[in-house]
Design a protein around this nucleic acid. Structure first.
Lengths: 134, 134
DNA sequence: GTGTTTGCAAACATTTTGCAGTCAC
DNA sequence: GTGACTGCAAAATGTTTGCAAACAC
């Protein structure tokens, strides 16, 4: 169980009910796009504004508390920052899963080939989840 | 040397000067975002419209002749479709390079772990290019 | 009490659409 | 000649900003 209030404070974000709800939703659902978040929060705060969602998501990204994941052929989703990982997206039902893959050998390969200093990686695989491939 | 007219016809796209210019630019520059393309084409067609760029890029994506690459913290770029490959982005100068990495073992790993049927992969590394890391 | 956040409305940015005239074939 | 494409203007969509009232601390 998570204490979202403490978590927000650690990231120097003032604790408002809207922010707590955003964190709760992301914690519960893993990955959500702006509209997902807006719809979920509307249920709790009937007069919440989309602008509030945007401002908070941007503030949380700024503090490196949230991360934007860009997904081919789909809207960006947001997730709580954790250790670097890859993503698996089902093109049929939209489900998104985290995936711990060992990317370091790829990064070495890339470094050797092109001599870049690599800071970040984005690995997104798209396909059919077990359910949808039946 | 490439024959863009033939290439467009092979993809069932009518050959217009604007389309030829889009293909020429992408062939010459590798990766371009919408504004890059618009500015380049404006030089050749002073009255070209952004709508024309959008319509053509979308039509070419539809025919699987172009591919959109989503880049963290940056605008999408478009490239001519070729064999699957990864991308290396310089966060300082914006340069984008193609990169042939062996992703198949990662895909196997992902398939084993999560039992998805993977169809596509998007691998984008961000860092500093040799020039900018000096 | 001070400074930040919220929600609203307006502004701004990006992308798509409808349509008349033009072009590809 | 027919259907597709272009460029324009308008519309639709997505995101940000300014501001007064409310809230966090």
């Amino acid at each position: 169980m998570m204490n979202y209030t403490t978590l927000l404070k650690e990231y120097n974000l003032k604790v408002t009910p809207q922010r707590v709800a955003i964190v709760e939703e992301l914690y519960a659902n893993g990955h959500m796009n702006i509209d997902d978040l807006y719809k979920k929060l509307l249920a709790k705060f009937p007069s919440i504004s989309l602008a509030t969602i945007y401002k908070n998501v941007n503030a949380m990204i700024e503090k490196v508390f949230l991360n934007e994941v860009k997904i081919p052929n789909s809207k960006s989703v947001y997730e709580l920052v954790k250790d670097e990982h890859s993503h698996l997206v089902c093109s049929s039902c939209g489900k998104i899963e985290d995936l711990d893959l060992n990317v370091s050998s790829l990064i070495e390969e890339a470094t050797t080939l092109k001599n870049y200093t690599i800071k970040q990686s984005s690995v997104v695989f798209t396909g059919l989840c077990p359910n949808c491939s039946k």
